[in-house]
Design a binder for these strands. Sequence first.
DNA 1: AAGAACATACCGTCCAGCCGGTATAGTATC
DNA 2: GATACTATACCGGCTGGACGGTATGTTCTT
Lengths: 195, 195
Amino acid sequence: MKDTSSTSSAVSLPDAQTRILDAAEAIVHSRGVSGLTLEAAARDAGVSKGGLLYHFASKEALLDALLRRLAGFFEQEYLGCVAAQPEGAGRIARAMLEWGFGQGEFACNERHDRAAAVFLAAFHHDPALLDPIRQVIARMRADIAADGLPPGHGDAITAAGDGMFMARIFRLYTPSEAERQAMRIALQRLLEFPR
Amino acid sequence: MKDTSSTSSAVSLPDAQTRILDAAEAIVHSRGVSGLTLEAAARDAGVSKGGLLYHFASKEALLDALLRRLAGFFEQEYLGCVAAQPEGAGRIARAMLEWGFGQGEFACNERHDRAAAVFLAAFHHDPALLDPIRQVIARMRADIAADGLPPGHGDAITAAGDGMFMARIFRLYTPSEAERQAMRIALQRLLEFPR
DNA sequence: AAGAACATACCGTCCAGCCGGTATAGTATC
DNA sequence: GATACTATACCGGCTGGACGGTATGTTCTT
């Protein structure tokens, strides 16, 4: 069946499926959605087109796998952000704030750009492919609703983070670090609300 | 289906260019980015492919025209929102709040969905096509910076509105009206801040 | 008559998906 | 242990259709 760790090679390559997924991700990131063809993905992954089709029966199947993997990363990152916050009311909102406006591990990085590219590619092919992501988001929204803050506060913080993400995806503008921190401080007001 | 080929009565159909633009917009909205082909746009606009290419020499030219028109609408709507707010500090931020979370004329409507579709289609073809929009956004950001609020407050409100827009574009979730109003009230806190 | 505003037919390219083939490893049978 | 059979993993050429763009009419307007 699945054999992740190959036999002899010390510099063990990831298995073909992972290589194909990585290659496809890299392509949509660098050459754009329209640059992703089966041939290109196969070539960059070091397999033939037939080999790719063996693992992913269609382009849609490839995108679907890409999206599911992405949704997994996404949820893991979310859970990591939450875990990094002390318990108590507003924990989720604080995690979201850190996620969208922090500077550490969870700040915007290159992986987010690839994620965005995958996201767009999938949406372009078929909006239904985003369903795995939608599920994760639904879960996050449920958490926010039970976060112990007045209604709307956590959602507002989350939406602001989403807005920053969109600006990044489409390169609408790139706020300076000072601006990002000013926004963070502003949004922090919405946490100090015991009411 | 109106009368397609009547003699040039002064009233009835918009000129061919507008019809083509409208048809293209409707297609990306209903059938998605990949559904927009020159043939389809021409057919839906009631002209032949040759006719379309007479007015828009290439697909890119068509998308460019679509985007420029969109940027115009966008800026008009922005200016309308600002004009509807009383003068004084935070005017722009108040306009943004109303734009993103209001219920009236400027609330989310079907035209925003078509705008989003056009936006995505253009980005997919060539990210540089978004430049007209980027210009409008740059102007808005400059206005916000001079809005008289503490730094970051207006940006946070704007980002939250953008986040809602993104959720709408990609159908990630659809908040209830109550949730939207809760967010609005939460964000309003960022206006009551005389420094 | 002349240009503008179309229509029709066609070309070249690109690409997804298909298909027949190959190589290797495991298993079973004798 | 040798032969036969099967499953897995992969190769690469092919094709059919879609689509952007071109070339050449044709009709309407002035």
